[in-house]
Design a protein around this nucleic acid. Sequence first.
RNA 1: GCCGAAGUGGCGGAAUUGGCAGACGCGACGGUCUCAAACACCGUUGGGCGUAAAGCCCGUGCCGGUUCGAGUCCGGCCUUCGGCACCA
Length: 812
Amino acid sequence: MADRYDPHTIEPKWRERWEADGIYRARDDDERPPWYQLTMFPYPSGDLHTGHWYAMTPPDAAARFRRMQGHSVLFPIGFDAFGLPAENAAIQRGVDPKEWTYGNIDQMRQQLRIMGGSFDWEREIVTCDPDYYHWTQWWFLKLYERGLAYRAEAAANWCPGCHTVLANEQVLDGLCERSDDPVERRFLTQWFFRITDYAEELLDFGGMEWPERVTTMQRNWIGRSEGANLRFPVDVEGVDEPLSVFTTRPDTVYGATFMVLAPEHDLVGRITTDGQREVVDGYVAATSRVTEIERLSTEREKTGVFTGAYAVNPFNGARIPIWIADYVLVTYGTGAIMAVPAHDERDFAFARDHGLDVIPVFDHPEIDVSRPLEAAFTEGGAMVNSGPFDGTPANDAIPAVIAHAEAEGAGTGAVTYRLRDWLISRQRYWGTPIPMIHCEACGVVPVPETDLPVVLPENVRFEPTGQSPLTQIEEWVNVDCPSCGSAARRETDTLDTFMCSSWYQMRYVDPHNPERPFSAETMRRWLPVDVYTGGAEHAVMHLLYTRFFWKAARDMGIVEGDEPMKRLFNQGVIVGPDGNRMSKSRGNVVAPDEQVEQHGVDAFRCQLMFIGPWDQGGPYNPSGMPGIVRWLNRLWTVATESAPDPGDGAASRDLVAATHRTIRDVTTDIEGSRFNTAIARLMELTTALTRARETGGVDTATWERSVETLILLTAPLAPHITDELWERRGKPYSVHQQAWPEFDESLVVEDTVEIVVQVNGKVRDRVTLPAGASEDDARERALASERVSNWVEGKQPRRVIYVPGKLLNIVV
RNA sequence: GCCGAAGUGGCGGAAUUGGCAGACGCGACGGUCUCAAACACCGUUGGGCGUAAAGCCCGUGCCGGUUCGAGUCCGGCCUUCGGCACCA
């Protein structure tokens, strides 16, 4: 009587119906409590692959689950559409980046719709739309007004072969990814955001449910170090200011036997003596040619040259030589160090290679510090060779030395971060134009808000000139100064695409607002995001930038609260059946279209969720698909065939208990993103129903309620088949607009419990007792068991451990 | 080198606060239905000893510890993956 389960007829039917009825639209006037479920928006590469399905179908299930739980859910989608691939396509194949991008978006939209995602398409955003980047530019102006945007000289990756600036991602092992030329560093004036102003606050993850993995990576990236800034007077005529160094070990200052400056340090030119000028200049020039990657290699020998100048140790008056070396980085601390070879491995290696003094200033239980050291050691006992500090225990040494430095005016306690300001300039075409104008008279002038957006010109020629293609477009570049009206030029750099994605979750709440990025009401209603899901590759950059952006917006009174995303979940990486990253060349690509064609959308979604824990990822092996297909078929069967013979209804109670256990488990599993175990529980309930149908003894009302509960619980995971079954059972449209089943604890309580009986910790028997039996009852029943008494052998139990309702352990 | 996560059957993986290791699924084997196939369904499936029963022993990367009891906690290793990497 019932026809077979055929996903290919029911899936398009429901997709069209949901869309026509707009049942997934998020309404701002909905009175139910709001829930903002966000999945990282894709780059429009033009092909939706299995990774996208893996990233997006579980949050779709979560969004559907929250809706059924009575939330008004915002589950939006859009495209992160600026960036390099479009520009590369333009350079290589002569296509227009805009056409290429929008063509891909059209294609991906179609593919995304097939997924059965409950996205609110009316809120779609595309970051390369002028309606969107209008507000990206507005944000830039706000940050500039607030003093958080500034210009400075910074190194860019320069490919001498292509005559162009490369993004970090285009540099592979120090070589240009296209021409294989060694990449050089070129200094350009570029725009930065002062993310470092927020370094301290960004270390605080209080009240956030973020994976520890991510918070740890962010902490390491920010890299807070405590120590001191110490000032060493320089013994060079005409140089009055002292040389400032940052150190985490001010307690080793008496062991400082030389100073090292980064080759790019400001002072180098001024302190170098005539006799050393040639070697120093040569070394500085050589350094600029060395790539960052080579330079950072710890394997490299520690090179460096003497400047001829000396500094004075403010603690003991020692006159110590000043060197330059590329193991000191100009971007960290003050770009200069006091070198303490006895207690720092790098300084030790440098001192050994260049014949410099090594003076230990801590003693050590296993090392004779009166003899030449064989290696640096960092952990010592008490201070030695340190004048008035001799004998100070290691634990007290740092505060003592800092206190002394502060009293003497030789330095102060200080904190340094590894985090650098965010370089946002790109010498590229396909990005948001930076809304600034350069005027000879007025300097840098912001474009007035009323003139936004600064629209990206079209029909651009891509020639490798080393500058953004925008510089070629005279009619775009030449503009009147907004301040004085004289001839001026537009900024031709564009914004890092990470800026587009730093605030997109805010735009979704009010995506068509022409007056501002979003209204205060919509902001208060939806933000911050309840759950944000996406790949771990964004653990640092994107997720740190968006936190910075939010905090800056908060300080400007634009948003409320301290963090943009309360909860974060990183899904794992899905790889090919062979365990390798899916790639065409390996031939291990699983194409979603083929999976859908063979098994249907619901089966593919469920298989991806069933494969293992969502945060773990792993190989996608289609060989497991039959299990999911069988389950959906069995679900179809129990839901479409008639109820079993009720008999005396004796089996009803067990079925009710099984149903409610499933409600409980599936609810907590989906809340915790454990979709794999949720499906396992649903399979079990399906099996229970299949069995009950054969054996009978279930009254019809109970049967119907269990079947319908099973359909409701499955709906978020397999949305099409469940709506079809719901309809066929004559229930009101749509299953996705029904309430989530309520769990009733009292219905799963059993009359009897099975107690495991152990003797000396080994399971020997099981006894069935009434629920709530006392320890004495359990003990009596256990000792009555022949299997148990065989092991006890008449010995007196030394001790009995009873875990009520679970276990009894007799120790003899 | 540093930081983080993980290691469980032939395979993917289960296992609240320490309490029956291997849920659920794949595969395999045996069977029902069928002219046959598909679909569906039933049974067995960690290893060893043992007659197939009962029963016993071993078993969650390795070594040791805590505990009545350890996949879970502690100490020390090994391996894999991810991140950072001369950060003073």
